[in-house]
Design a protein around this nucleic acid. Structure first.
Length: 596
DNA sequence: GTGACGTTGTGTGA
DNA sequence: TCACACAACGTCAC
C-alpha cells in the first residue's frame, strides 16, 4: 500500500474510454516472465484486433517485499540483486512499451486476485500470457483460468519461454520425460519454428484503456519496495531486454568464438571477461527469447566451416535448459529428495488426491494419467545427508577456509552469478565432495542469491552435482585446491573476491594454512585470525563422502529405491559409527580457534 | 541380460 | 599432452 501511495501519479499513455468495457475490444497482456517485446507471441496476439491493450505486471509481495529474517538482504524468496535485476527489466520493458504508444501497468498483491480484479474492472474479452511449466505458475494459472472460463474470457497462453513444449516431448516419449540428454536430443529434433522468421519487432501497440479503480503505479525502485538505503556491492549485470539484446549481439558477433565454444573447456576463474555469454539471467526472466538466441546461433553455424555441437556447444546449452525444463515438468516433487518414493509407489494417488488433475491442461491430462500408471521414472537416490548448521553457514558465508570455494561464494553473494564450473565446485564441496550436507540446503542458497536462478535448472543441477540423479559417478570429486589452481595458478580470482588474501604468495594462495607464519605475517593474513582454517580436511572428508555414497547406493539398490525414513535414519547411524574422526577433529580445533 | 555410454575429476607416469 | 587407474553408477538400446 505504501508503494502504491507514494507512486500514485497520473498515468501517462492512458486514454479514458468509458464505453470501452461495453465494447469488449480490450485485452490484457499479463507479463510474468517473458519481459520482452521481441518474439513475444502472447503480446502479438493480445494486440491483434484489440482497441485497447493493458500490459500488466503484478508485484507479488512474497517475492519483492523485505524479509528481515532472511540470511541476506532481500525478500523471503529472492536476494536483493535479483529483485533489482527484475525492477530494471520492468523499467526497460516500460520504456519500450512507451515507445510503442503503451506503458506497463504495475499492480501489487496476490497475482491471481489482482488479475481477476483487473479482468472484472476492465471488462476485457482476451487474456494473454506466456505459458509457464513451473509449479508456482501452474497453480496460479489454474485459479485464473477458472475465472476466465466462467466469465467467457478467451485465454491465449503460448509456449515461448523454451525451444520446445515440454508436454510435447513427454508425449512423444510415451508419457515419460527423457532422462538423458542424448535421448532428449533424439526426441526433440529440430524446433518446428526454426525455418520461419520470428517476429522480433513491433511497430505500434493499441493504447491503454481506462484503468478504473484498479491501483496502478509506475515501476517501483528498490527504495519504494521498503529497502531503504542499501549499502552493498551490486551485481555488474544490468537487467532488461535492451541489455540482453546488446549482450547477445556482442556474443554472436564473434563468430569464431561461437563456432568453437565448448562449455567444459571454459575457464571458471575469468571474471573481467567471463568465459560464457552471461545471458542466463536474461533467459531466466525472458528478457531474451531462447528461440531468438537459438536462431542467431544457427545463423552463425551456417556461415562457418565447422562448429561445435551439443552438448558442449552454445546451442547445446539452450538444449540443456530445455532438457531440465522437460524433466522438471514431468516429475512430481522434482525439487525434493523424499518425493521420489511417493512418485514410485503412489503416483496415482498423488495426482488424483492432491488436486493435480485440475492443475494440468485437459489435453495433457490423459498423458499424465498414463504416465502416473507407468510410474514416473526419474530415479532420485535417497542419501542420508548430514544436517549441520555450522558447516552450512561456513559454506554460505564464505568461511570454509578453502579460498577457491570461499571466493566463489563471495562472487555468488556480490554478483549473483558465477561460471558453471565454479557452481560445480561449491556444490560438490557442500554435498558429496566434502561436507556431506543436503543438496536441498545448497539449492535454497543458490535459489535466493543467483540472479539467473531458475527452478528447473537449479534443482536439476543440484540433483546432478550431488549424484542424486542424472549423474552417478561419485568418485569424480572436484578438489577445492587443484581444480581452481589448474585454471588460475596465480590466484587472481581469489585475490579479487577475497582481498584478505591479496598479498599471499601464489605458492600458498590455494592452501594458506600451509604458509609458514613469517609468510602469513608478511601477507598480513594470519590463518585462524584474518582468514579461517579449513573446516574439513579435504583428503579424509572426500574419502568419507565416497564411503557414505557407496553405502547409500548399495542400500538404494537393495531396496529398489524404496527407503523409508527409518531406513535412512538407520543408515545415518551406521555411517556415523564407522566415521573417520579426523575431519571432526579439525572442526573442533577450528571452533576453538575462532572462540579464542 | 549385456554392453556402450555419459557436457565439465584427480593424480601419475610417459 | 595423453593414457590410464581409481571404482563403478544408471540409462538406454539391443
Amino acid at each position: 500500500m505504501q508503494l502504491l501511495l507514494c507512486l500514485s501519479k497520473p498515468a501517462q499513455h492512458v486514454k479514458k474510454n468509458p464505453l470501452m468495457a461495453a465494447s469488449g475490444s480490450g485485452s490484457i497482456m499479463w507479463f510474468r516472465k517473458g519481459l520482452r517485446i521481441h518474439d513475444n507471441p502472447a503480446l502479438e496476439y493480445a494486440s491483434k484486433g484489440s482497441d485497447f491493450l493493458y500490459p500488466v505486471f503484478v508485484i507479488d509481495p512474497h517475492y519483492m517485499e523485505p524479509d528481515p529474517k532472511a540470511f541476506s538482504p532481500g525478500s523471503r524468496l529472492a536476494g536483493l540483486n535479483r529483485i533489482r535485476f527484475l525492477l530494471e527489466s520492468l523499467k526497460d520493458l516500460d520504456t519500450s512499451l512507451k515507445k510503442l504508444g503503451s506503458r506497463l501497468l504495475i499492480s501489487k498483491g496476490e497475482p491471481d486476485k489482482v488479475l481477476i480484479q483487473c479482468l472484472k474492472e476492465w471488462g476485457v474479452k482476451k487474456l494473454c500470457f506466456e505459458h509457464d511449466t513451473e509449479p508456482y505458475y501452474q497453480a496460479l494459472d489454474i485459479k485464473v483460468k477458472e475465472y476466465t472460463s466462467a466469465a467467457g474470457i478467451e485465454v491465449f497462453s503460448p509456449v515461448s519461454h523454451t525451444l520446445f513444449n515440454p508436454a510435447d516431448i513427454i508425449q512423444r516419449n510415451g508419457g515419460k520425460p527423457p532422462l538423458t540428454y542424448q535421448s532428449f536430443l533424439k526426441l526433440a529434433g529440430q524446433p518446428s519454428w526454426l525455418s520461419s522468421p520470428l517476429l522480433t519487432s513491433i511497430s505500434s501497440l493499441p493504447p491503454v484503456g481506462d484503468v478504473g479503480s484498479c491501483e496502478i503505479s509506475e515501476v517501483p525502485t528498490i527504495k519504494d519496495l521498503g529497502y531503504g538505503d542499501i549499502e552493498q556491492e551490486w551485481t555488474p549485470f544490468r537487467g532488461g531486454e535492451s541489455e540482453a539484446l546488446k549482450r547477445l549481439k556482442e556474443s554472436v558477433s564473434d563468430k569464431k568464438w561461437v563456432a568453437n565454444f565448448e562449455k567444459p573447456k571454459g575457464n571458471p576463474s575469468l571474471f573481467v571477461k567471463p568465459a560464457t555469454t552471461v545471458l542466463s539471467p536474461y533467459l531466466k526472466f525472458g528478457c531474451l527469447s531462447s528461440r531468438y538466441f537459438y536462431q542467431c546461433l544457427q545463423d552463425v553455424y551456417k556461415n562457418v566451416q565447422k562448429h561445435t555441437s551439443p552438448p558442449v556447444s552454445l546451442a547445446g546449452q539452450l538444449l540443456w535448459r530445455d532438457f531440465f525444463y522437460t524433466v522438471a515438468f514431468g516429475t512430481p516433487n522434482f525439487d525434493r529428495m523424499k518425493g521420489n518414493k511417493l512418485c514410485k509407489q503412489g503416483a496415482r494417488s498423488f495426482f488424483f488426491k492432491k488436486g493435480y488433475r485440475s492443475l494440468i491442461s485437459s489435453s495433457f491430462h490423459n498423458i499424465i494419467q498414463d504416465f502416473a500408471l507407468r510410474m514416473p521414472s526419474l530415479n532420485v537416490v535417497m542419501i542420508p545427508w548430514n544436517d549441520d548448521d555450522e558447516l552450512l553457514a561456513a559454506w554460505r558465508e564464505a568461511r570454509t577456509g578453502y579460498p577457491w570455494i570461499d571466493a566463489i561464494m563471495v562472487q555468488l553473494r556480490t554478483w549473483g552469478w558465477m561460471h558453471h564450473l565454479a557452481r560445480h565446485s561449491v556444490a560438490c564441496f557442500l554435498t558429496r565432495g566434502d561436507m556431506f550436507l543436503h543438496w536441498e540446503r545448497g539449492r535454497d542458497v543458490f535459489e535466493r542469491l543467483l540472479i539467473d536462478s531458475d527452478w528447473a535448472i537449479n534443482n536439476g543441477n543440484w540433483l546432478w552435482l550431488s549424484c542424486s540423479s542424472f549423474f552417478y559417478q561419485y568418485n569424480r570429486i572436484y578438489s577445492p585446491i587443484s581444480f581452481g589452481k589448474k585454471y588460475d595458478p596465480n590466484g587472481n580470482y581469489i585475490r579479487h573476491f577475497l582481498p584478505v588474501l591479496k598479498d599471499m604468495p601464489k605458492e600458498y594462495i590455494y592452501e594458506p594454512w600451509t604458509a609458514p607464519s613469517g609468510i602469513q605475517r608478511k601477507a598480513k593474513c594470519i590463518v585462524g585470525r584474518d582468514y579461517p582454517k579449513p573446516v574439513v580436511y579435504h583428503d579424509s572428508a572426500s574419502k568419507e563422502c565416497k564411503r557414505k555414497l557407496a553405502e547409500a547406493y548399495a542400500l538404494n539398490q537393495k531396496l529398489n529405491g524404496q527407503l523409508s525414513q527409518e531406513d535412512l535414519d538407520n543408515l545415518r547411524r551406521k555411517l556415523a559409527q564407522d566415521e573417520d574422526p579426523e575431519p571432526k577433529i579439525r572442526r573442533q580445533r577450528r571452533k576453538v580457534g575462532h572462540l579464542t
